[in-house]
Amino acid sequence: MMGKVYFVGAGSGDPELLTLKGKRVLESADVIIYDRLVHPVLLYLAKESAHFIYSGKYPKNHVLKQKNINQLLLEEGLKEQNVVRLKGGDPGIFGRVGEEIATLQSEGISYEIVPGVTAASAASSYSGIPLTHREYSSKVTLATAHRQAGETIDFKGLTENGTMCLYMGVERVESTQKKLLEQGVSSQLPAAIVEWGSLGRQRTVTATIQTMVEVIEKHQIQNPSLIILGNVVSCRNGADWFEQLPLFGHRILLIDTEKIDFETIISYTQQGADVYAIQVGENRDQRFDEVHQQYLRDHYFDEVVYLNEELRTMYKKQWDVFNKRFV
């Protein structure tokens, strides 16, 4: 008897953007294959026997190449178990879910797709920018800057009374700007660039088509970032609701010798903090050792909250040790 593969959209950034169905499926999974853009605190929802496999992809440096991921899905899906392929955002929006489904179909492996909150929705909402507006925009286009050879986009038509969301667009912003201006799009059309949307480390900068290249360079904005083009950007008026939360911008590491509850973690993200949680000590869940090392290689945290009084006393002067990959 074969298993079943669930393609689950983890949402974009904020762990609470996971859907109720996604949470239920994640809690019952035997194997979880997760991407780099998935917030790994979601793994705290997994049962104790679940196996974690990291498939994170970096620009120009794929940890697991797509063909290997496809093969992995086949191998795990042929076993009698529930497999969750946990993807950032929504699996069906630039998530290559079509290729992975075709692989499963070739072997008759059953699957389900659980949609997630895509970056366009999350980054715009958490920046105070509506994607549609009765006065400014009656349509929304989701596009990627990484286009197939010879493929063209009607920037002029799509931005007229519309909003355009460019995924993974920062690296190719110069060529995008050139195409926009060549097609006669107004150089003064507003643009917003949202980095790490819906996480406490989110940064939102506004510009115009004319200035967006220099603004990105000035602020050293990097992927993952979303570029929003359209007059709806003018609805943003400085720091919006998310950026006004009391802990927004705080990068907090929670540490305990006991397993850290998911509800404890989100009590910080609900206040706007960028949070990660680590259980330490001999009794720690060792499945997370590799997860922690991978995540801390990419992200830093400059505030520590010890949830255990003994730890608080022991390590209050040793934050540097933790910051140098302590598990």
Score class of each variant (00 low, 15 high):
Glu135Ile: 03
Asn82Leu: 11
Phe322Tyr: 14
Gln294Arg: 15
Val233Thr: 07
Ile153Arg: 04
Thr257Asn: 07
Ile32Tyr: 02
Glu303Leu: 14
Val173Ala: 13
Arg284Trp: 04
Ile265Phe: 00
Pro91Lys: 12
Lys57Asp: 05
Lys218Cys: 01
Phe155Arg: 00
Thr141Asn: 08
Asn68Asp: 15
Gln244Pro: 00
Met1Gln: 11
Asn61Asp: 14
Gly116Leu: 06
Leu296Val: 01
Ile69Ser: 03
Ile260Ala: 02
Ser137Gln: 03
Tyr268Met: 08
Ser110Thr: 13
Ser55Tyr: 07
Ile260Arg: 03
Ser55Met: 07
Val5Trp: 04
Glu174Leu: 01
Ala123Tyr: 03
Val63Thr: 13
Ile109Ala: 12
Asp240Leu: 09
Val280Leu: 06
Leu245Cys: 05
Asp320Ile: 04
Glu100Gln: 13
Tyr126Asn: 07
Leu307His: 12
Phe301Gln: 01
Arg36Tyr: 11
Gly230Trp: 04
Glu135Lys: 15
Gly197Leu: 05
Leu37Ala: 04
Ile129Ser: 13
Arg85Ala: 10
Phe322Asn: 02
Thr141Trp: 03
Val31Met: 01
Leu64Asn: 09
Gly230Met: 01
Gln188Ser: 14
Ala277Tyr: 08
Met168Ile: 06
Glu310Ala: 14
Tyr167His: 03
Ser267Leu: 06
Ser121Thr: 12
Leu229Asp: 07
Arg36Met: 08
Trp196Tyr: 15
Lys218Pro: 03
Ile216Pro: 04
Leu142Thr: 01
Gly184Phe: 08
Ser12Pro: 00
Val117Met: 08
Thr141Leu: 06
Asn231His: 13
Gln66Cys: 00
Leu42Cys: 06
Gly150Gln: 13
Gly200Ile: 10
Gln294Tyr: 10
Asp256Asn: 13
Leu254Ile: 02
Thr269Met: 01
Glu99Pro: 07
Ile32Met: 03
Glu309Thr: 14
Val38Ile: 05
